[in-house]
Design a protein around this nucleic acid. Structure first.
Length: 411
RNA sequence: GCGCCUGUCGUCAAGUGGUCAAGACCUCGGAUUGUGGUUCCGAUAUGCAUGGGUUCGAAUCCCAUCAGGCGCCCCA
């Protein structure tokens, strides 16, 4: 038997109603906030992700689905199934000169992403993200708008009490100063860091702060190290930006926790970074991650443009959310006269009613039993009804049955 | 990519080396030839993730592969 590929999943039945519901809520909340939907291709040039996501990241180094296409001819090109969507949206932004529209340029998206990882709870090889990208606003109001949209969307799907963690990485200069100080203070302890952190020390020292290894944690607790970690290397401008943002969040009643150890894995972030977590998720606890990436558009060849965004993992959201049930039909047509039943179904569906009928013309009792499971009402269309031109409507909750003369009264 | 645990019907499961692999729910059929959701009867795995091996005998023991869970890593 051929099975679905490891880390992929069929979504159908009851689950699909919850998916639809999540998607509908995203559409409402984001469109009401002025975000337009953008659908970018599922594959892009490999180079886009190498440059956009960052070649020091695991995503690019070991998790991408990359293919050579065009056969073995010399001009075969390398394409990659998108591991995230920010790079693709930025590519579209540049390619279509969207920068020439008046800012802000606001987009939301929903779609599958691909990463070749070991699957576990909340982690699949094909997974889905909903997210938002906003361009053209350098003011902290943009950060606030984006975080607010995330929080409001989560509220709309009934998730009211998730923890928002917030940090600022500063501008490239602040980030660099901080990085250098971290490297300097950790240098004497390098031997005692875990193997992963030894690697990070060269490649991406800020990520050392994320390490949960006990030995590393002990080093962070050493006084001088702790001082450096918790010290602000943030310039006045970046500090103002962050302070203003937190004031907006206070005014909005959005609760957050400052987490100075929050450093996000993708290279492109600067200033604001945030995550929204749930302890109900196990070790993959982040539902949402995002931040500001003022340098990315320029880095990918566009005009220098400030930007903020976030992405949420829909599968993770799904585990947290209350499951939705299949909506009941307005009518189930109970009839052994298939010819009349199918015609009535067509007419009612044209009036935007949810209707089914029994295609096997089974026994009356069977049809009614089926109807009671999936519909609010049964329309009984037997010989008497057809000959005398009326409909018997049975309310399947109360059991009450009424006679209706005109089709219009069914609508 | 690494470590630990798991894998019996659509679902939840009993069975831990010796006749035909319990049971429940779901599904389908019947009791009920135009009145359901209750009840009662019946059907449904020559098969125990897959492939090998040990044994007179394997769902049960061993090996490999595949898949799932948790943790590491990474991230949403």
């Amino acid at each position: 038997m051929i099975k679905a590929q490891r880390g992929t999943k069929d979504i159908f039945g009851e689950e699909s109603y919850t998916w639809q519901w999540i998607l509908n809520n995203a559409q409402n909340v984001f469109q009401n906030a002025g975000f337009q939907e953008i659908k970018t291709p599922i594959f892009e040039a490999t180079e886009l992700f190498a440059r956009g996501v960052g070649d020091s990241t695991d995503i690019v180094n070991k998790e991408m689905y990359t293919f050579q296409v065009g056969g073995i001819e010399k001009n075969a090109t390398s394409i990659t199934l998108r591991p995230e969507n920010t790079a693709g949206v930025v590519r579209a932004f540049i390619e279509h000169n969207i920068v020439r529209q008046s800012p802000p340029q606001k987009f939301w998206y929903f779609g599958p992403m691909f990463r070749y990882e070991r699957p576990q709870a909340g982690r699949q090889r094909q997974f889905h993200q909903v997210g938002v990208e906003m361009f053209g606003i350098k003011e902290p109001s943009a950060d606030a708008e984006v975080i607010m949209s995330a929080v409001e969307f989560l509220k709309s799907v009934g998730l009211d009490n998730l923890e928002v963690e917030l940090n600022t990485l500063g501008c490239p200069k602040c980030k660099n100063d901080y990085r250098n100080s971290i490297k300097e203070i950790l240098k004497p302890h390098l031997e005692n860091l875990c193997d992963d952190c030894k690697m990070r020390y060269e490649k991406n020292p800020l990520r050392i702060l994320d390490c949960k290894n006990e030995d590393c944690q002990k080093i962070f607790e050493i006084k001088e190290v702790k001082n450096v970690i918790l010290n602000d290397y943030i310039c006045d401008e970046c500090k103002d930006h962050f302070d203003t943002l937190t004031k907006y969040l206070d005014d909005l009643g959005i609760k957050y926790q400052r987490n100075k150890l929050l450093v996000r894995g993708l290279d492109y972030y600067n200033r604001t970074v945030f995550e929204i977590k749930s302890s109900a998720l196990g070790s993959q606890s982040a539902v949402c991650g995002g931040g500001r990436y003022d340098g990315l558009v320029e880095m990918l060849g566009g005009a220098s443009t400030p930007a903020v965004g976030f992405a949420m993992g829909v599968e993770r959201l799904f585990t947290l959310v209350e499951k939705q049930e299949a909506p009941k039909l307005d009518y189930f047509i109970v009839s052994t006269n298939t010819k009349e039943a199918i015609k009535l179904a067509q007419k009612l569906r044209q009036q935007n009613k949810k209707v089914e009928f029994d295609m096997q013309a089974r026994k009356f009792a069977k049809q009614l039993e089926k109807a009671s499971k999936i519909a609010k009402n049964a329309i009984i269309l037997g010989e008497d009804e057809i000959n005398q031109g009326f409909y018997s409507i049975k309310n399947l909750e109360t059991g009450e049955q009424t006679k209706i003369e005109k089709f219009e009264n069914l609508i």
